[in-house]
Design a protein around this nucleic acid. Structure first.
Lengths: 234, 234, 234, 234
DNA sequence: AATGAATGAGCGTTCATTCAT
DNA sequence: TATGAATGAACGCTCATTCAT
């Protein structure tokens, strides 16, 4: 399922991706779904459940997801879920955490480089597309956006562990770039302005893709060209 | 650009705004809630319901909202809701439509003006902040973002009646501006890039406001300064 | 609707028949049904309601009938029903009574005649077919059969005012006929045996007519030929 | 003629009979009803539910029966019903099928015998009384009669699997008997005439038994004596 | 008398959670 | 550890009945 390029990654979350879409579990007459093979190995149970949960939560949203379906998709009994997760809320939150945690490591590194911003920005775009947009993490971020309000703990986690770090790193970097005149100072205060089109990409693909497909890569490229065109600065 | 008609607006949607968040209706021991309005006269019922529904849907999301709570908040009996709306889905959809409909009228006009884009953009920012961001419409758009996938009809409505028109108008306008060299041509293809920070504002305020407040007006101003700084163009 | 031959009858119940079948009131989009014209005249209200109730109860059974539909079909407001009938139960019971009452008058007369039983039986068949089977009274009797258990008062009324009288009259008559050797004495004890095929006719037409239509008149004729073939008697 | 296999019958349907009518479960203050069976072991659950459903449906009719009461009577939680039956409709239909299915097997055999019809008829009477009239199947057939119209599938099932077979077998048999002069030819065309008093018995016992008890066995005996008195034939 | 908006108890059904095995 | 049958609170929706007009 895409993500194939994420070579080095061996973290737990990696395992979560790669589950079959299997559209209409609900409609399946009876009996076990062609269950996830991972379900058999003791250690894999937890991951199988997370993978199944990802599928179901993405497809239907938090409230509409039935743990019965998650279990079926994971190839386990419903009660087994409760051996690994306290309840539905916890399952959801741990899923989101597990999927986003791997992002954290790579973030701090970013602030270190000192490439010219426009170059860096291009790498960032590439990273976003390959590691998020073409990945199951897109779904997770969409879930954060949709359900985050009901999970303040999660929103806080996401803000604290992901967003604030990304933005801090960006600010540090941008400040230096601005000092070199490579970048308008306004960006230092609002790094969100750099990330905004990524948010658009995720929201758009969830809601309007069918009415108006969006070439995300090109849009993002256009965006950084706009912001970081050589010879720019406020 | 209009939309200003919202000035003297006494229409239904107007009434919807301004209801108290009233956190935990659910926890209230018993008896009627100090109803938002007691829905005094017949015609007001429908609006009272919509207002209550907006509160509840915003606070809990579609699935988690109980019509019992909507009724209580509106100061009516549960069954009364069904005199005005076929079912929960319909209530939700009509709420969104009712809140967004007033936006539609003014949109087409926007393409007509021929002010310099940077000036126009400033007005647009002002309009967004005053008519959406500081308004209950912010909640409605957040609902669209969160629940839109479960209501394809609604997503389509929103795309067709709101977004596509806004973007069409913007494209027409930007094309002319680009021809005059006021604006980078890339924006003509991706008007989303102009709107992106507005989306950020709405999502951010729903999820992270409490951890990191965002000065939306300044962010938006910074954004258009970046894009439309005089002497810019690709 | 049939019943046209019931000339002399001017009783209230007469008016009840003759309502349009109007299959799917329920499905009708909105607005008033092409209401029964009788509804307009004050005095006719009660009858209009009974007529509508007959249609609805026959079509759906007691529990499944909605007073809303009865009102719509009668061309009146729902509340008006309660001006004429205490509640749904009462409406049902009065409907059955009103429809069956006219039968009572004619019954006593029957015992008086002293025609040969086979001749009398033929008249009886004819009476049943014309006044019941081809009439809305068929539906009423079916309702009695279906719902009677929940209305013991009604069952008792029906037994006391209709059945017991019919059977008493029959017994008196049969006794005389048996004395003349025209009829097996067993029939005196069980006049139900004479009426049984009529019950079959009503039940069959409600349940199996579509799979296997039944020529009721011929069946009844065959039956009395069997019982009263000249030269019969036990 | 068989059907006697019901002798050693320990199948599901057997178990269904024999539950207490238990008039007003509804009125019982609180707590569990002294459950009919507490549905001790897994396999018994389904039968316990069917038994409870039979009681409730018989007592109140389909629509008026509350699954809550069925559950209480079966000594289980309401939700448990849905582990065994898709919905209320299905429960009803499976109840009827389960109760009537055992009748089906023995029917075809009936046409084979070549006893004198009057003898055969007496056996049939005995069979009806013992296997239906004195059994919970009486209630099931009454339910068919009362609710059959709302369950066309069931009516068709009953007609196809039970009635048409019975009547076909009877016709074959009667035809031979008529050829031997034992029976009036009219019966070949209308076997319903033979069965009619059985229908009377069931309907009567449901509605009028308390006002006028009926000696069903004697009535049926009288009936076949009338039809098959030696030396009869049209 | 007549209306029809409003009520609220009631019911079928779902599903997170528990627990005996 | 794992199961999956069982539970029962919850919720959407209906509809007989009431009542202000």
């Amino acid at each position: 399922m895409s993500m194939k390029k994420a070579k080095g990654d061996t973290s737990a979350t990696r395992q979560i991706a790669g589950t079959k879409p299997a559209a209409k579990v609900r409609a399946q007459a009876a009996g076990k779904v062609a269950a996830n093979s991972r379900a058999s190995r003791g250690a894999g149970r937890r991951e199988a459940i997370l993978a199944a949960a990802l599928d179901e939560f993405s497809a239907r949203g938090f409230e509409a997801t039935r743990l019965d379906d998650v279990a079926k998709r994971a190839g386990i009994a419903k009660g087994t879920i409760y051996l690994y997760f306290r309840d539905k809320d916890t399952l959801f939150q741990e899923l989101v955490r597990a999927m986003l945690a791997p992002l954290i490591g790579g973030i701090e590194a970013m602030g270190a480089t000192d490439l010219p911003v426009n170059l860096l920005a291009e790498r960032l775009v590439d990273l976003f597309v390959r590691e998020i947009y073409e990945t199951r993490r897109q779904d997770v971020i969409r879930l954060m956006i949709s359900e985050g309000r009901r999970f303040p703990k999660l929103a806080e986690f996401y803000y604290r562990e992901v967003l604030s770090r990304v933005f801090d790193a960006m600010r540090a970097l941008l400040k230096r770039a601005a000092a070199r005149g490579e970048v308008p100072v306004a960006l230092v205060e609002f790094p969100q302005l750099i990330a905004a089109p990524a948010l658009v990409a995720i929201v758009w693909s969830g809601l309007f893709e069918r009415y108006a497909p969006l070439d995300v890569r090109r849009m993002l490229k256009a965006h950084i060209d706009l912001l970081f065109a050589p010879g720019r600065a406020a």
